[in-house]
Each structure stands twice: as C-alpha cells, then as structure tokens.
C-alpha cells in the first residue's frame, strides 16, 4: 500500500503549497481597480446591462473566440476520432422499452426547452446567461430527444452548415469591428441603443445569437456522435 500513502503525502504537500494562497484570502471589501472600471463605465462602453456578458463578449472577446474554438476543436477531434466506416454499424440499437411518461413529457418539454435556450442567448446582454448557456440548454433539448425516441437521427449536414455559418459570421463580426469600430471584436459596430431594451449593446446580441447557435449545434453533434458510437461493433 506504499503508493496510496505516497499519494496522500503528496496531497498534503500540495495543500501546503496552496495554503499561503488560501490563507492570504481575506475577502475583498470593495472591487479591484479593474472591476471598478467595468462597474463604472461598462454600461456606457458596451451598452449591455449584464456586465459579465460585456466582459465576456467585448472586453475579453478574444477569450470567447478561443472558447468557441475549443468547443469546435473538441467536436471535430471527436468526430474524426470516433468516426467509423458505414459497414460496421449494427442494424439498430436494442430498444429499451420507452415508458409512456417519457414520450409524452418529452413532446411537451422539448419545444419549451428550445424556446428557453433561444430566449437565453437572445437577450444574453440583459439577463444572466448567454451564448454558452443557451447552447447548452438546446443541447440538453436534443439530448432529451435522443433519449425519448431511439431512432432519432441527427442530420450531420444541417449541423455542419449551421455550425460553420455561425462560426464564420462570428469571425466576420470581429473583423468588421476593426474597420467600423475600435478594434477586433468591438461591439460598437451597431448602435448601442438604449440600455435594457432588446436591441441595445451593439453587436453583443448578434454575437451571442450566433454563438448560441454554434454551441448548441456543436454540443448536440458531440452527443450525436456518442449516441451513434453506441451501436458500433
């Protein structure tokens, strides 16, 4: 059992390494200088009520771009990694008996979930949530569809089209930012509009919509691949 004790010892050591950090944290009374700046003129700059969204989309837009690329990478790596030839796909999955409750509930719930997802990413700049959360909700909707009726097939062509177009649009908006506004991914290419209304905060809603679409399609694509790989030999 030497290994286990060694690992425990290591954990204690790591705890010791991290302890000064933990111990130095007194909880802050007021915002850091950066946070204060965002609080003061976050709304004027980006016009978005939800400060987190303004930070995520405009101030640190490159992170979000990186963020999307990571999901795109994960999806494409998994797609060519778990992909398999047509011939070794089994005829059909053994179908577990789908209970009555699940099918009826899913018929009611799925449109609601999709509506919720769209709502979340459309006014990401007002209410908490945004592209990622909306996309995730849509993906959970597709997940429910996979669970409820077994022979649900996801058409890869549609997924690819939506995903690619939203990705390309996102990059185009970013590039537009350079010409029409301050810099790459600047949202002031459209009028900031008046705070708290749907059409405010410049390009943020547009970005978030496409982002939501992209994340939603990608995650459902990932789920689709996992489902398809179920019935591989």
């Amino acid at each position: 059992m030497g290994k286990k004790t060694l690992i425990v010892l290591l954990m204690v050591a790591m705890a010791a390494v991290l302890y000064p950090l933990y111990e130095s944290y007194q909880g802050s009374e007021q915002l850091t200088e950066l946070g204060q700046y965002y609080a003061d003129n976050g709304v004027q700059d980006t016009g978005a009520a939800n400060l987190v969204t303004s930070v995520v989309v405009t101030y640190r837009g490159l992170d979000t771009l990186g963020e999307v690329t990571i999901l795109f990478l994960a999806a494409s790596v998994i797609s060519f990694f778990l992909s398999f030839k047509k011939e070794d796909r089994k005829e059909s999955r053994e179908i577990r008996n789908i209970t009555e409750i699940l099918t009826t509930a899913s018929q009611v719930l799925i449109p609601m979930i999709y509506m919720l997802g769209v709502y979340i990413f459309v006014n990401g700049h007002l209410t908490p949530g945004g592209g990622f959360q909306g996309g995730a909700v849509i993906a959970s909707g597709t997940l429910l569809m996979f669970l409820s009726n077994p022979d649900f097939k996801l058409s890869h062509k549609v997924i690819h089209y939506v995903e690619s177009t939203s990705g390309v649009v996102f990059v185009l908006i970013g590039v537009l930012g350079i010409f029409m506004a301050g810099g790459f991914l600047d949202n002031r290419i459209l009028g900031l509009g008046e705070v708290n209304t749907l059409f405010s905060a410049g390009a943020i809603p547009v970005i978030y919509t496409f982002l939501g679409l992209k994340v939603g399609t990608e995650l459902s694509n990932v789920l689709g691949i996992f489902v398809e790989s179920q019935n591989e030999q």
């Binding site: 802050s28 915002l31 850091t32 950066l34 946070g35 965002y38 609080a39 976050g42 400060l51 987190v52 303004s54 930070v55 995520v56 101030y59 640190r60 992170d63 979000t64 990186g66 963020e67 990571i70 999901l71 990478l73 994960a74 790596v77 998994i78 990694f81 778990l82 945004g130 990622f132 990932v222």
Partner: peptide, 24 residues
C-alpha cells in the same frame, strides 16, 4: 467583480471539452 466570473465561464467549457476528449 465580473472578471473572475467571465474567466470561470470559459474554464467550465474548457473542462467540458477536455472531459469529452478524454472519454472518447
């Protein structure tokens, strides 16, 4: 402070990406 929240948002999605790849 909104900044850490923005960072966490990204790191959760990164966590998902890495976990999905590991499971594959």
């Amino acid at each position: 402070d909104p900044v850490p929240q923005a960072l966490v948002l990204t790191s959760i999605v990164i966590g998902l990406g890495v976990t999905a790849l590991m499971l594959a």
